[in-house]
Design a protein around this nucleic acid. Sequence first.
DNA 1: CTTCCTTTGTCAACCGGTTGCCAAAAATTG
DNA 2: CAATTTTTGGCAACCGGTTGACAAAGGAAG
Lengths: 352, 352
Amino acid sequence: MSEPRTQDLSEPPADAPKPARGGKSSPTIYDIAKLAGVNPSTVSRALSKPGRVSAKTQKLIEDAAAQLEYRVNPFARALPTGRTNTLALIVADITNPTFFGIIRGAEATATARDYTMMLAESAESPDTELTAARRMLATVDGIILASPRMEDTRILELAREKPVVVINRQVEGVPSVVPDVNKGIGEAVRNLAANGHRKIAYVAGPPQSWMTARRWEGVKAACEWSHLECVQLPSTKPTVDGGRQVARDVVASGATAVMTYNDLLAIGLMQELQAAGMQVPDQISIVGFDDIFGADFTTPALTTIRSPMTDCGTEAATLLLDLLHGGGEAVPALQVETELVLRGSSGRLLAS
Amino acid sequence: MSEPRTQDLSEPPADAPKPARGGKSSPTIYDIAKLAGVNPSTVSRALSKPGRVSAKTQKLIEDAAAQLEYRVNPFARALPTGRTNTLALIVADITNPTFFGIIRGAEATATARDYTMMLAESAESPDTELTAARRMLATVDGIILASPRMEDTRILELAREKPVVVINRQVEGVPSVVPDVNKGIGEAVRNLAANGHRKIAYVAGPPQSWMTARRWEGVKAACEWSHLECVQLPSTKPTVDGGRQVARDVVASGATAVMTYNDLLAIGLMQELQAAGMQVPDQISIVGFDDIFGADFTTPALTTIRSPMTDCGTEAATLLLDLLHGGGEAVPALQVETELVLRGSSGRLLAS
DNA sequence: CTTCCTTTGTCAACCGGTTGCCAAAAATTG
DNA sequence: CAATTTTTGGCAACCGGTTGACAAAGGAAG
């Protein structure tokens, strides 16, 4: 009785006729109660409601729990309470480096506060996204949507069932974390103006991306302020390949500097322009967006406007967790700062 | 009674005094049973045990379920059965592109077979890894460990509780999926030999990585076969930065071609060598490993040995799901093929 | 030493499915 | 048409926690 440890390792297969579970079935609060000589409900309180039981009983129960290597059964807990200590994060594209920081930031925050994070991706499809969200809805306490592609209405539907925080988008009535693009864009445009550029092209992202509109607005405003001409060019898709395809339009536009919706577009664009014999940045300057992993692999390394994605992930998770614990009620819209990361792909325009 | 739909939408908030749940509480099998005029257990059978109830009753129940927009409560199901329809994937580093393919492949497979995937990362720490694994153990049906850093013993402990599949490593008695490096390495070494190289350096990865040893063995064997000299160089860490740091040793080694444990090392190495004024590939050829995202961003683009990581993820998930459904018992060790991806960073050695 | 107020532990119901056992109903067979 | 086998549906116990209501025990105040 006092030393059941080594025996336990061999007994269960013998005395439990149908273990059913993968291995040996784990101890329950009933086992602890028996060992500590108290009622199961007291055990439950000792382990989840701090201060509800006397210090003496508390210790008794904790020791028993430790001895049995007890771990709560999350399902048994979730069933009556609905609490799962799990968060869902849905990103538009797992392979898009933009999201790495978000994933990491959110994961770290969740783990630090004793939550587990479930990750799903929508592969850029609004339908897949909604399906994934619906599927996870039942098993998590809250959801973070990073750059969601679904309609506002759908997001609001989800938000009615469980707390939702969106990143890179703003939806009326839903808490959000969004990079404030203006600072970074302002720095970039001023820099380009100072380097002699007079016309800037902005290569847009997918129309359903909320962020591409914000960035274009930012570019337009900054250009007006600096008395620069600017023009928006559509892209087929926000990838390296999409960047290659838009190169022809960029040249045709007559702009000497390009800002793109994201770094992937910028990298593809640069590859294509260089392949066509153009010098970057001597003939054309390129500025990307996001400062993704790999942005400095290129030659020249990519100048880009960094959005602190890790912070976005951290902030979003914090926001969500605070909401779950009855914190801030005010449907906040957090902003994080962007900044220009000056590398080799932008610079002084040389007369050609 | 026959048209409770529109009423139901407004009633619950009214007649349920304590919704407790985030929104309105969802319908249960009891609601379905009432609506269909059968016993709850019959509903349960109709929805999970195909063929156990008559076609007529089945339809009755399915219609009622559809009408109520019923969705099973995963916790209620998991509690008695232990089944969760959830898989855990633990990777060493979320930001390391090597794992993107694994994540995506595993996620897609899981989703296709109606499982949800939970993702965790260990940040390269054996302890964090074990903690994460233990935490998820209770809530998932099985675990995929991608490039695990923990000891064999620990992996075996986990495997005793729930089915485990490892990627990029082999552990006695645990099913695994591992790229067969020899084909790709053979192609690479033959190509280097044909281009006039006589001495090859291999930049190793972290000592606790099972894979770095396999790759070195492969390089050594292929070099012997092609009568090339080869030497192994340690690195501080398997990142771009680690690659930069090892550049000096590479030059000192006198090798004219370098193969690295992974692409990140190769990219860092190339950056540093180019910064020091060396021509790639004219003076030194560089071959990476994995063909990660961004491997073609560099100038010249990186020659590398591609491991089909997406396949690894797919295979691992398939293996695990088959195990869970009582499939293959034989503790398989799957191999996936590697291949040389010839780009610009390797080529003919020019006399200097 | 009462009386009253806290603190602490127990009882029992409940969360929402699953499943073994049994009996009623239906189908098959003689 | 009765006897037997197979289907099919119902009953009730159970999974492992949580929690409201309540009573016993302990402490403070008078």
